[in-house]
Protein backbone atom coordinates (compact mmCIF):
# COMPACT_ATOMS: atom_id res chain seq x y z
CA UNK A 1 0.00 0.00 0.00
CA UNK A 2 1.38 3.44 -0.84
CA UNK A 3 2.74 4.82 2.36
CA UNK A 4 1.78 8.10 3.84
CA UNK A 5 3.97 10.94 2.66
CA UNK A 6 6.67 11.74 5.12
CA UNK A 7 8.95 14.64 4.50
CA UNK A 8 11.82 13.41 6.66
CA UNK A 9 11.86 9.66 6.04
CA UNK A 10 12.60 8.66 2.47
CA UNK A 11 12.76 4.97 3.44
CA UNK A 12 9.43 3.77 2.13
CA UNK A 13 10.01 0.18 3.21
CA UNK A 14 10.40 1.22 6.84
CA UNK A 15 7.33 3.42 6.49
CA UNK A 16 5.30 0.58 5.03
CA UNK A 17 6.42 -1.66 7.88
CA UNK A 18 5.42 0.84 10.53
CA UNK A 19 2.09 1.37 8.75
CA UNK A 20 1.54 -2.39 8.65
CA UNK A 21 2.41 -2.67 12.35
CA UNK A 22 -0.27 -0.11 13.11
CA UNK A 23 -2.98 -2.23 11.44
CA UNK A 24 -5.25 -4.60 13.30
CA UNK A 25 -3.55 -7.86 14.19
CA UNK A 26 -4.59 -10.60 11.80
CA UNK A 27 -3.04 -14.09 12.01
CA UNK A 28 -4.29 -14.91 8.47
CA UNK A 29 -1.80 -12.44 7.03
CA UNK A 30 1.17 -14.51 8.22
CA UNK A 31 -0.40 -17.95 7.70
CA UNK A 32 2.10 -19.75 5.44
CA UNK A 33 -0.25 -22.56 4.42
CA UNK A 34 -2.97 -20.13 3.48
CA UNK A 35 -0.65 -17.74 1.65
CA UNK A 36 -0.96 -18.93 -1.98
CA UNK A 37 -4.76 -19.00 -1.96
CA UNK A 38 -5.15 -15.85 0.15
CA UNK A 39 -2.78 -13.93 -2.13
CA UNK A 40 -4.56 -15.12 -5.25
CA UNK A 41 -7.95 -14.26 -3.84
CA UNK A 42 -6.82 -10.77 -2.79
CA UNK A 43 -5.53 -10.27 -6.35
CA UNK A 44 -8.96 -11.26 -7.64
CA UNK A 45 -10.61 -8.62 -5.47
CA UNK A 46 -8.04 -5.96 -6.34
CA UNK A 47 -7.82 -6.79 -10.04
CA UNK A 48 -11.59 -6.59 -10.43
CA UNK A 49 -11.64 -3.10 -9.00
CA UNK A 50 -8.46 -2.05 -10.83
CA UNK A 51 -9.52 -3.22 -14.28
CA UNK A 52 -13.15 -2.11 -13.99
CA UNK A 53 -12.00 1.18 -12.46
CA UNK A 54 -9.62 1.70 -15.38
CA UNK A 55 -12.35 0.88 -17.89
CA UNK A 56 -14.80 3.30 -16.30
CA UNK A 57 -12.13 6.00 -16.13
CA UNK A 58 -11.92 5.82 -19.93
CA UNK A 59 -15.23 7.71 -19.97
CA UNK A 60 -13.67 10.72 -18.25
CA UNK A 61 -14.25 13.69 -20.52
CA UNK A 62 -16.47 11.62 -22.84
CA UNK A 63 -19.64 11.17 -20.76
CA UNK A 64 -22.96 11.90 -22.47
CA UNK A 65 -23.80 14.56 -19.86
CA UNK A 66 -21.66 16.42 -17.36
CA UNK A 67 -23.34 14.71 -14.38
CA UNK A 68 -22.77 11.27 -15.88
CA UNK A 69 -19.17 12.08 -16.66
CA UNK A 70 -18.60 13.14 -13.06
CA UNK A 71 -20.45 10.14 -11.65
CA UNK A 72 -18.40 7.72 -13.75
CA UNK A 73 -15.15 9.42 -12.76
CA UNK A 74 -16.13 9.27 -9.09
CA UNK A 75 -17.01 5.59 -9.38
CA UNK A 76 -13.69 4.85 -11.06
CA UNK A 77 -11.89 6.73 -8.29
CA UNK A 78 -13.65 4.69 -5.60
CA UNK A 79 -12.68 1.46 -7.36
CA UNK A 80 -9.04 2.51 -7.70
CA UNK A 81 -9.13 3.37 -3.98
CA UNK A 82 -10.37 -0.15 -3.23
CA UNK A 83 -7.57 -1.51 -5.40
CA UNK A 84 -4.97 0.17 -3.22
CA UNK A 85 -6.43 -1.54 -0.18
CA UNK A 86 -6.83 -5.03 -1.72
CA UNK A 87 -3.53 -5.12 -3.58
CA UNK A 88 -1.80 -3.48 -0.62
CA UNK A 89 -2.93 -6.36 1.57
CA UNK A 90 -2.05 -8.84 -1.19
CA UNK A 91 1.51 -7.49 -1.27
CA UNK A 92 1.70 -7.76 2.50
CA UNK A 93 0.50 -11.37 2.44
CA UNK A 94 2.94 -12.19 -0.35
CA UNK A 95 5.74 -10.63 1.73
CA UNK A 96 8.23 -10.39 -1.11
CA UNK A 97 8.82 -6.68 -0.62
CA UNK A 98 6.39 -5.64 -3.34
CA UNK A 99 3.80 -2.88 -3.13
CA UNK A 100 0.28 -2.43 -4.48
CA UNK A 101 1.79 -0.37 -7.29
CA UNK A 102 4.22 -3.16 -8.20
CA UNK A 103 1.34 -5.61 -8.45
CA UNK A 104 -0.73 -3.23 -10.56
CA UNK A 105 1.97 -2.09 -12.94
CA UNK A 106 4.45 -4.94 -13.20
CA UNK A 107 2.36 -8.07 -13.63
CA UNK A 108 1.57 -9.54 -17.04
CA UNK A 109 -1.92 -10.35 -18.28
CA UNK A 110 -1.70 -14.04 -17.31
CA UNK A 111 -1.09 -13.00 -13.71
CA UNK A 112 -4.22 -10.86 -13.57
CA UNK A 113 -7.12 -12.45 -11.74
CA UNK A 114 -10.08 -10.22 -12.63
CA UNK A 115 -13.39 -11.48 -14.02
CA UNK A 116 -13.61 -11.31 -17.79
CA UNK A 117 -16.71 -9.14 -17.33
CA UNK A 118 -14.55 -6.35 -15.86
CA UNK A 119 -12.23 -6.10 -18.87
CA UNK A 120 -14.84 -5.99 -21.64
CA UNK A 121 -14.77 -2.80 -23.71
CA UNK A 122 -17.08 0.02 -22.65
CA UNK A 123 -19.23 -0.08 -25.79
CA UNK A 124 -22.03 2.45 -25.49
CA UNK A 125 -23.53 3.76 -22.24
CA UNK A 126 -25.93 0.81 -22.20
CA UNK A 127 -23.07 -1.71 -22.09
CA UNK A 128 -21.12 0.37 -19.57
CA UNK A 129 -24.11 0.72 -17.24
CA UNK A 130 -25.30 -2.86 -17.57
CA UNK A 131 -21.78 -4.17 -16.91
CA UNK A 132 -21.55 -1.92 -13.89
CA UNK A 133 -24.94 -3.00 -12.60
CA UNK A 134 -24.22 -6.74 -12.90
CA UNK A 135 -20.86 -6.18 -11.19
CA UNK A 136 -22.19 -3.77 -8.54
CA UNK A 137 -24.88 -6.25 -7.50
CA UNK A 138 -22.19 -8.91 -6.99
CA UNK A 139 -19.79 -6.44 -5.39
CA UNK A 140 -22.44 -5.25 -2.94
CA UNK A 141 -23.41 -8.73 -1.75
CA UNK A 142 -19.79 -9.91 -1.69
CA UNK A 143 -18.63 -6.96 0.44
CA UNK A 144 -21.63 -7.31 2.73
CA UNK A 145 -20.60 -10.91 3.40
CA UNK A 146 -16.93 -9.91 3.76
CA UNK A 147 -17.72 -7.46 6.57
CA UNK A 148 -18.21 -10.66 8.62
CA UNK A 149 -14.88 -12.16 7.47
CA UNK A 150 -12.76 -14.09 9.97
CA UNK A 151 -9.89 -11.89 8.79
CA UNK A 152 -10.16 -8.50 10.51
CA UNK A 153 -8.05 -6.88 7.77
CA UNK A 154 -10.42 -8.13 5.06
CA UNK A 155 -13.45 -7.14 7.12
CA UNK A 156 -12.26 -3.56 7.59
CA UNK A 157 -11.50 -3.08 3.90
CA UNK A 158 -14.93 -4.49 3.05
CA UNK A 159 -16.68 -2.19 5.54
CA UNK A 160 -14.92 0.82 4.04
CA UNK A 161 -15.61 -0.17 0.42
CA UNK A 162 -19.21 -1.21 1.05
CA UNK A 163 -20.24 2.34 1.93
CA UNK A 164 -19.12 3.49 -1.50
CA UNK A 165 -20.38 0.49 -3.41
CA UNK A 166 -23.87 1.01 -1.93
CA UNK A 167 -23.96 4.29 -3.83
CA UNK A 168 -22.64 2.59 -6.98
CA UNK A 169 -25.40 0.00 -6.89
CA UNK A 170 -28.05 2.60 -6.17
CA UNK A 171 -26.94 4.64 -9.16
CA UNK A 172 -26.51 1.78 -11.64
CA UNK A 173 -29.87 0.21 -10.69
CA UNK A 174 -31.59 3.57 -11.07
CA UNK A 175 -30.15 4.03 -14.52
CA UNK A 176 -30.88 0.48 -15.66
CA UNK A 177 -34.52 1.08 -14.71
CA UNK A 178 -34.70 4.52 -16.31
CA UNK A 179 -33.13 3.42 -19.58
CA UNK A 180 -34.69 -0.05 -19.69
CA UNK A 181 -38.12 1.41 -19.04
CA UNK A 182 -37.31 4.46 -21.15
CA UNK A 183 -37.66 5.08 -24.86
CA UNK A 184 -37.85 2.35 -27.49
CA UNK A 185 -34.24 3.07 -28.41
CA UNK A 186 -32.90 3.02 -24.85
CA UNK A 187 -34.88 -0.13 -24.04
CA UNK A 188 -33.52 -1.93 -27.10
CA UNK A 189 -29.95 -0.95 -26.31
CA UNK A 190 -30.23 -2.03 -22.67
CA UNK A 191 -31.68 -5.39 -23.67
CA UNK A 192 -28.91 -5.86 -26.22
CA UNK A 193 -26.29 -4.99 -23.58
CA UNK A 194 -27.83 -7.47 -21.15
CA UNK A 195 -27.91 -10.22 -23.78
CA UNK A 196 -24.27 -9.59 -24.62
CA UNK A 197 -23.01 -9.44 -21.01
CA UNK A 198 -25.13 -12.15 -19.44
CA UNK A 199 -22.87 -15.06 -20.52
CA UNK A 200 -20.01 -13.37 -18.63
CA UNK A 201 -21.92 -12.87 -15.38
CA UNK A 202 -21.80 -16.48 -14.17
CA UNK A 203 -18.04 -16.44 -13.60
CA UNK A 204 -18.65 -14.59 -10.32
CA UNK A 205 -20.17 -17.70 -8.81
CA UNK A 206 -18.00 -20.48 -10.21
CA UNK A 207 -15.72 -21.49 -7.34
CA UNK A 208 -12.34 -23.14 -7.72
CA UNK A 209 -9.71 -24.38 -5.22
CA UNK A 210 -8.72 -20.80 -4.33
CA UNK A 211 -12.30 -19.84 -3.49
CA UNK A 212 -12.74 -23.04 -1.52
CA UNK A 213 -9.57 -22.44 0.51
CA UNK A 214 -10.51 -18.89 1.55
CA UNK A 215 -14.09 -19.98 2.26
CA UNK A 216 -12.83 -22.83 4.46
CA UNK A 217 -10.64 -20.38 6.35
CA UNK A 218 -13.72 -18.23 6.98
CA UNK A 219 -12.17 -15.32 5.06
CA UNK A 220 -14.70 -15.21 2.24
CA UNK A 221 -18.20 -16.56 1.69
CA UNK A 222 -19.00 -19.67 -0.30
CA UNK A 223 -19.69 -18.22 -3.74
CA UNK A 224 -22.74 -20.35 -4.39
CA UNK A 225 -24.30 -18.87 -1.24
CA UNK A 226 -24.04 -15.37 -2.72
CA UNK A 227 -25.81 -16.28 -5.90
CA UNK A 228 -29.44 -16.19 -4.65
CA UNK A 229 -29.06 -12.66 -3.24
CA UNK A 230 -27.43 -11.46 -6.47
CA UNK A 231 -30.12 -13.09 -8.53
CA UNK A 232 -32.85 -11.47 -6.48
CA UNK A 233 -31.35 -8.00 -6.83
CA UNK A 234 -30.82 -8.49 -10.57
CA UNK A 235 -34.28 -9.88 -11.19
CA UNK A 236 -36.01 -7.13 -9.22
CA UNK A 237 -34.23 -4.41 -11.14
CA UNK A 238 -34.63 -6.09 -14.53
CA UNK A 239 -38.35 -6.56 -13.92
CA UNK A 240 -38.74 -2.91 -13.02
CA UNK A 241 -36.69 -2.02 -16.08
CA UNK A 242 -38.99 -4.14 -18.28
CA UNK A 243 -35.94 -6.09 -19.45
CA UNK A 244 -35.92 -9.83 -20.04
CA UNK A 245 -33.35 -12.04 -18.39
CA UNK A 246 -31.65 -14.09 -21.11
CA UNK A 247 -32.49 -17.79 -21.24
CA UNK A 248 -28.98 -19.02 -21.93
CA UNK A 249 -26.28 -20.07 -19.52
CA UNK A 250 -24.60 -17.29 -17.56
CA UNK A 251 -21.24 -19.04 -17.15
CA UNK A 252 -20.22 -19.46 -20.78
CA UNK A 253 -17.22 -17.14 -20.61
CA UNK A 254 -14.94 -17.71 -17.67
CA UNK A 255 -11.29 -18.15 -16.80
CA UNK A 256 -10.37 -14.59 -15.85
CA UNK A 257 -10.02 -15.62 -12.23
CA UNK A 258 -7.41 -18.17 -13.28
CA UNK A 259 -5.58 -15.78 -15.60
CA UNK A 260 -7.26 -16.69 -18.90
CA UNK A 261 -8.42 -13.43 -20.38
CA UNK A 262 -10.10 -12.00 -23.43
CA UNK A 263 -7.94 -10.23 -25.98
CA UNK A 264 -9.02 -6.92 -24.44
CA UNK A 265 -7.00 -7.10 -21.24
CA UNK A 266 -3.64 -6.80 -23.01
CA UNK A 267 -4.67 -3.46 -24.51
CA UNK A 268 -5.71 -2.13 -21.11
CA UNK A 269 -2.40 -3.15 -19.58
CA UNK A 270 -0.42 -1.73 -22.48
CA UNK A 271 -1.88 1.65 -21.69
CA UNK A 272 -1.98 1.37 -17.91
CA UNK A 273 1.49 -0.07 -17.46
CA UNK A 274 3.33 1.84 -20.18
CA UNK A 275 5.00 4.38 -17.94
CA UNK A 276 6.35 1.88 -15.41
CA UNK A 277 7.52 -0.45 -18.19
CA UNK A 278 9.24 2.29 -20.17
CA UNK A 279 10.69 4.11 -17.17
CA UNK A 280 11.03 1.51 -14.40
CA UNK A 281 10.70 3.00 -10.93
CA UNK A 282 9.53 6.38 -12.21
CA UNK A 283 7.69 8.32 -9.53
CA UNK A 284 6.57 11.84 -8.72
Amino acid sequence: MPSLPDMTTPDVVALAESAAAAQSHDPHVQDVDLKPAFFDWLCRMGDNTLILGHRISEWCGHGPALEEDIALANTALDLIGHTQMWLGLAAEVQSEGRTADDLAFLRDAMKFRNLQLAELPNGDMAVTLMREFLFDAWHFHMLTALTRSASPRVAEIAAKALKEVSYHLERSSDLVVRLGDGTQESHARMQEALDRLWPYSGEMFVADAVDDAVANAGIAPVLADLQPAWQQTVEEVLAEATLTRPEGRADVHRGGKQGRHTEHLGYILAQMQFLQRAYPGASW
Binding site: L4, P5, D6, M7, A76, L77, D78, L79, I80, G81, H82, Q84, M85, K160, A161, E164
Partner: peptide
Protein backbone atom coordinates in the same frame (compact mmCIF):
# COMPACT_ATOMS: atom_id res chain seq x y z
CA UNK B 1 -9.65 8.57 4.75
CA UNK B 2 -13.06 10.00 3.83
CA UNK B 3 -13.46 8.05 0.59
CA UNK B 4 -11.10 5.21 -0.40
CA UNK B 5 -10.03 6.94 -3.58
CA UNK B 6 -10.24 10.53 -2.41
CA UNK B 7 -7.35 12.33 -4.13
CA UNK B 8 -7.22 14.83 -1.28
CA UNK B 9 -6.04 12.20 1.22
CA UNK B 10 -2.32 12.65 0.50
CA UNK B 11 -2.69 16.44 0.47
CA UNK B 12 -4.48 16.33 3.83
CA UNK B 13 -1.69 14.23 5.32
CA UNK B 14 0.89 16.65 4.04
CA UNK B 15 -1.05 19.65 5.37
CA UNK B 16 -1.31 18.08 8.84
CA UNK B 17 2.34 17.17 8.87
CA UNK B 18 3.65 20.56 7.75
Amino acid sequence: PTYSGCPATAVIDLAIES
